[in-house]
Each structure stands twice: as C-alpha cells, then as structure tokens.
C-alpha cells in the first residue's frame, strides 16, 4: 500500500513524531511504500538540526535523517508553519535576510500543496497529532 504520513506535533513534548517514526519503519519493513512524510504545525520542529537531546535519549531528528537515507524518504517541512517557528533552510535564510539556517539533512521545505498532493496520491494518509 502507498502511505503518506502527517506529523502535527514537535519532538519530545508529544509522542506523535516517535509514533510516526515507528509506524513508518514498520510499514517500510512490511514492504509498503511511503509516498511522503509531511511536517505541519509544531511538527516542523522535528526538522531542526540544532537540537541537542541528552546522550542517553533518542535523537528524533537524526532518526528521521537516517531513515530518509536508507529509504530515500521524501521528508517535507511546511514552509508557512516553518517560517512562523524559525525553521529555515539555506535559501530561505538568505531570502529572509537571516544569519543562520537550521534544517537537518534529509528534510526539504515546501508548500502545503505537498500535503494535499500526498492525500491525493496515497492510498491512506495517516495523521499523527495530539
């Protein structure tokens, strides 16, 4: 089955991203296709490369980056939600005149149309939120 994933909450405070990660891994292991993972609301915070969780804890962003590498996942960060919350890639940082960028490897920034397209193209859109 072709699946799309939406994550609506940020890392650590809510379990949504962990659950989405476990679900995505399990679905891939069963041979399903993941069309796209779309980060919305505070879910965009899962894409920051500047978080430094304690060493004995999981690193949620790195887990996603690793999974992206292994399976060529399409990890998309909503641009409108990201700009509100200070998540910028290099191009956006330049365009907005900011002195830093913080999007982790493996993620890309794009528009809300990517979520709608995922809903259209996938057999199921699975939403992880609070």
């Amino acid at each position: 089955m072709k699946l799309a994933i939406q994550i609506n909450e940020g890392p650590y405070q809510h379990q949504a991203s962990d659950s989405a990660y476990q679900f995505t891994r399990a679905a891939l292991a069963k041979g399903h296709e993941i069309f796209r993972v779309f980060l919305y609301h505070d879910g965009v915070n899962n894409a920051t490369r500047l978080a430094v969780p304690p060493q004995d804890d999981r690193n949620i962003t790195q887990q996603w980056t690793q999974l992206q590498k292994e399976h060529e996942l399409d990890l998309v960060v909503c641009i409108a939600a990201a700009q509100r919350r200070g998540l910028l890639d290099e191009d956006e940082a330049k365009r907005q005149g900011k002195d830093a960028n913080n999007i982790a490897e493996g993620f890309r920034i794009s528009g809300l149309g990517q979520l709608i397209e995922a809903g259209i193209e996938a057999d199921r859109l699975v939403v992880f939120g609070d």
Binding site: H41, I116, I120
Partner: peptide, 19 residues
C-alpha cells in the same frame, strides 16, 4: 492554539487542487 488558523490555511490550499 494555532490549529484553527493553520487548518484554514490547508483548507484554502486544498481548494486550489480542485478536490
């Protein structure tokens, strides 16, 4: 919370996709 506002943003985009 911001859910209502960001929901409206998705709804308006979805309409542009003629769904």
């Amino acid at each position: 919370t911001i859910y209502a506002l960001e929901s409206l943003e998705v709804v308006l985009i979805s309409a542009a996709f003629e769904q």
